[in-house]
């Protein structure tokens, strides 16, 4: 029994050392997002609290904590309170399988990529529950938009993942990274990388696909009735999800924790730093796109997902499979 408790203690220790950096980096990333947005529009962005305004998010979080939590009288209370918790938990739980280096991973499971995909596809529940339980028109419309959008774009993300898996021959995230030692998949699968990136924007409800919370039409979409800490949880979960999508993109296409080239000055830099740099690079692209691209119309969004991305990624899947088959490059199963 004491042995079990020891193991449990170690795991909790590891989990805390995974979650705290993620929460801190979520705070920093919100600052970065607002800063980039400001710089693109020739504003300064948040620059008052702390050095370069770095503590702006912490100040905001503090403000949210002390605000009153308002639950609408006609809301379904249990579901209303559950929704932000579900969003936040799912966004954090997925980080368990992300490898920061060959050994630095909490759970090195066989079906890591499926786990990531499953958790990110569960993310829609937080939004749907929040929208429905608010018992109000705007949140409900936002939730319905969001559900349709996330389910649609998940399909093409799934097919893109299959593309990568064909080249790797394993579902383990570390093996996906190691298979890119010679060549990052962003080069042979470049169209898939672009589609993955755009689908990730749609999956996380980021501009130009932020129709579920389009200010001009739906106030704040599914979050309209939320206030205080519950709103902050939605918001943290959203940014944790964005970081997760960036991590997924860097593992699938940008070689995860591998250095750009395996030469002297580059391979001295520790592996987790490479991973963080790649996540940051992808996040900068997310932030820039938020600042420079106008919002899509809803029918255009659906058309893009079902009529363009899905057929294109299916055709690319067939092409990849035939290329691997005819040039005898299919990954060998070690039997």
């Amino acid at each position: 029994m004491i042995e079990y408790l020891q193991i449990l203690g170690q795991e909790i220790y590891k989990i805390i050392f995974l979650l705290v950096p993620i929460l801190v980096s979520v705070a920093m990333i919100v600052w970065l997002d607002r800063r980039v947005w400001g710089l693109v529009q020739k504003r300064r962005g948040p620059n008052v609290v702390g050095p370069f305004g770095l503590f702006q998010t912490l100040a905001d979080a503090l403000k949210y904590i002390f605000k009153e939590i308002i639950i609408p009288a006609s809301a379904n209370k249990v579901v209303f309170i559950l929704a932000p918790i579900v969003t936040m938990t799912l966004a954090l739980v997925a980080w368990a399988v992300i490898p920061m280096s060959e050994n630095l991973v909490l759970a090195d499971i066989n079906v890591g990529i499926l786990y990531l995909f499953a958790v990110s596809s569960l993310g829609v529940y937080g939004i749907i529950m929040g929208g429905w339980a608010s018992n109000s028109k705007y949140p409900f419309l936002g939730a319905i938009r969001s559900a349709a959008q996330m389910v649609s774009y998940e399909v093409s993300i799934g097919i893109i993942i299959i593309n990568v898996l064909l080249c790797v021959g394993s579902l383990n995230l570390n093996e996906i990274v190691i298979a890119q030692k010679e060549l990052w998949y962003v080069i042979p699968l470049f169209p898939m990388f672009v589609i993955f990136f755009i689908s990730a924007l749609a999956e996380t409800n980021r501009p130009p696909f932020d129709l579920p919370e389009a200010e001009a039409e739906l106030v704040a979409g599914y979050q309209t009735e939320y206030s205080g800490m519950m709103y902050a949880m939605f918001w943290l979960g959203e940014y944790a999800n964005i970081l997760l999508m960036c991590a997924m993109g860097s593992i699938l296409f940008l070689g995860g924790w591998l250095p750009i080239m395996d030469v002297y000055p580059l391979n001295v830099i520790p592996a987790p730093l490479w991973m963080i740099l790649k996540i940051l690079f992808l996040f900068l692209l997310f932030a820039l796109i938020k600042a420079i691209v106008p919002r899509y119309r809803y029918d255009q969004l659906m058309r893009l997902g079902w009529k363009i991305f899905l057929p294109f990624s299916l055709i690319y899947l067939v092409l990849t499979a035939s290329f691997l088959f005819y040039f005898d490059k299919l990954p060998k199963v070690s039997i």
Binding site: I109, N110, A118, L122, V124, I128, I144, A147, G158
Partner: peptide, 26 residues
């Protein structure tokens, strides 16, 4: 059966049940 478990989560929870919920709410 980790593969089956994950596929159950992805297909049923991630897609089918979302549509159920959708229909019931609509």
């Amino acid at each position: 059966a980790e593969f089956l478990g994950m596929i159950l989560l992805i297909v049923y929870v991630g897609a089918v049940a979302v549509l159920f919920l959708f229909v019931v709410m609509m």
